[in-house]
Write a protein that binds this DNA or RNA. Structure first.
Length: 432
RNA sequence: GGAGGGAUGACAGAGCGGCCGAAUGUACCGGUCUUGAAAACCGGCGUGGGCUUGCCCACCGUGGGUUCAAAUCCCACUCCCUCCGCCA
């Protein structure tokens, strides 16, 4: 949620920032009007309330002084005022609710550092990396046997069974078999071990309450993109960001405890509403995938370094896996609702000849913390924390890129050495 | 799923219709004393909102209700503890 006080204080700056992501200034004006209306009504209600309280005090005094007739009279007056107060409060509450609803629909202010642009076409490619680049090797060329889509070569090897997944849960719910399932597990273990030095491992619930989804900004805006369990007021988490951000909901943290850095391996569920038909084959876009998430609560001063650390760790894993990737700085128009700045990592997958998004490293400033009400105490008083997070990494697409990149001429897959401690024999052969 | 007990400030814990935004202790911050520290003593010490910046309003798990007046009474719900049932 954006800061209403900031909108009041510097409306033009806020409008200008939000215009960069296509939010019309009229939305802000509507909010400012509601705010003025709300404060007027609130003031009326509070003045009446103060009178009722004062009269009630006098009733108590009169009763103790045995002046019952005086008390009766005071009660009558107070009862009338009470009725008016109730009306005034209801009017004020109604406006407050409208105001909050409007405010919840407003996305975060983009960071001044985020590039300009209306949509993904304007994202800025910051750099590319490939194996051997530091030693002067050119951008890799790929052999014909690497130009086979993962859904084909994986089926040959018997490590991916999309038909069975579809039978169980519908299309876009993949089922991994044998070494395919083991590879997924190896990747998660590798990542969690790499982050152990600084990030506490969390295994959160895979579902979250509506209230929890609100605090991360996924509701009300992204309701159609999530799976819902209405009977129990639960939603399947689209990312571990949801439980991690809400873990300290409503708390005031000690400044000395920051940054609090957390990592979690969870399944992630996405309905991908409206995405049908677009790059949906194989593992390109699925309803459920495993992901290791990195997350930090920090002070505003720590945020930049925390963001950089998560990005470095995500990139570090890609390099260890020897996968070609590029780094994109998302333009203002392509930022997620809650984000002020996002760096995406995309892996090049030769079999499908596409760049696949495998990580999104975001800085939310205090946008999520304001909704989730996570603060810290400092010398300057109590203030909202900043949150940052990023995937390191999302495995379905990494899995696809690995299988395609490391496919050998004979159809087997020779995995990178870094996986040896987790996978053993690094060659995936057809099951006999 | 059934029965009982509970939820109050950073923590512990009192209050159980009006003088309660809330005793007391601990922790924390400032001061006195001290070479320094500890102890002792003194003072301070929740969060948010409104405006006429001195006051007002809200918050005692959550939501409703009763009342002139609710932390306190009533109802529903959530969570925690104990016991019973069921169950990886």
């Amino acid at each position: 949620m954006i800061d209403l006080a900031q909108l009041r204080r510097e409306p033009d700056e806020v409008k200008a920032a939000l215009a960069r992501r296509g939010v019309p200034a009229s939305n802000m004006d509507a909010i400012l009007e509601l705010d003025i209306e709300h404060r007027r009504l609130l003031h009326d209600a509070e003045a009446l309330r103060a009178q009722v309280k004062d009269l009630s005090r006098q009733v108590g005094e009169a009763r103790r002084a045995k002046a019952d007739d005086v008390a009766e009279e005071l009660q009558r007056t107070s009862r009338e005022l009470g009725d008016r107060e109730r009306e005034a409060s209801e009017a004020s509450d109604a406006v407050a609710e409208k105001l909050r609803a409007e405010l919840l629909m407003i996305p975060n202010l983009p960071s001044p550092d985020a590039p300009d642009g209306p949509d993904e076409s304007a994202n800025v490619e910051v750099r590319r990396w490939w194996l051997g680049m530091a030693e002067g090797a050119p951008f890799p060329t790929y052999e014909d046997y690497q130009r086979v889509a993962h859904w084909e070569c994986a089926r040959e090897l018997g490590i991916l069974d999309l038909e069975s997944g579809a039978k169980l849960a519908g299309s876009m719910f993949p089922l991994y078999r044998g070494d395919g399932a083991r590879l997924l597990r190896a990747l998660s273990f590798l990542a969690l071990d790499r982050h152990r030095d600084a990030y506490e491992e969390i295994r959160p619930p895979s579902v979250a309450l509506t209230e929890t989804m609100m605090s991360t900004g996924h509701l009300p805006k992204s309701a159609d993109d999530m799976y819902e369990v209405p009977r129990d007021d639960l939603w399947l988490i689209p990312t571990a960001e949801v439980p991690l951000t809400s873990m300290r909901r409503g708390e005031i943290l000690d400044e000395s405890a920051l940054p609090i850095r957390l990592t979690a391996l969870t399944a992630c569920f996405r309905r991908e509403a409206g995405a049908a038909g677009r790059d949906t084959r194989g593992l390109l876009r699925v309803h459920e995938f495993d992901k290791v998430e990195l997350f930090a609560y920090c002070t505003p001063e720590q945020a930049e370094a925390a963001h950089a650390d998560i990005l470095a760790r995500a990139e570090g894993l890609l390099r260890e896996l020897g996968l070609t990737y590029r780094v994109l700085d998302l333009c203002a128009g392509d930022l997620g609702t809650s984000s002020a700045r996002t760096i995406d990592l995309e892996v090049y997958s030769p079999g499908v000849d596409k760049w696949l998004e495998v990580s999104s490293v975001s800085w939310f400033r205090d946008f999520q913390a304001r909704r989730a009400n996570v603060r810290f105490r400092s010398a300057q008083g109590t203030q909202f924390v900043h949150t940052v997070n990023g995937s390191a990494l999302a495995w379905a697409r990494i899995w696809a890129a690995l299988v395609e990149t490391y496919r050998q001429a004979d159809g087997t897959v020779r995995l990178p050495d870094v996986l040896a401690p987790y996978f053993g024999d690094l060659t995936i052969r057809p099951r006999s």
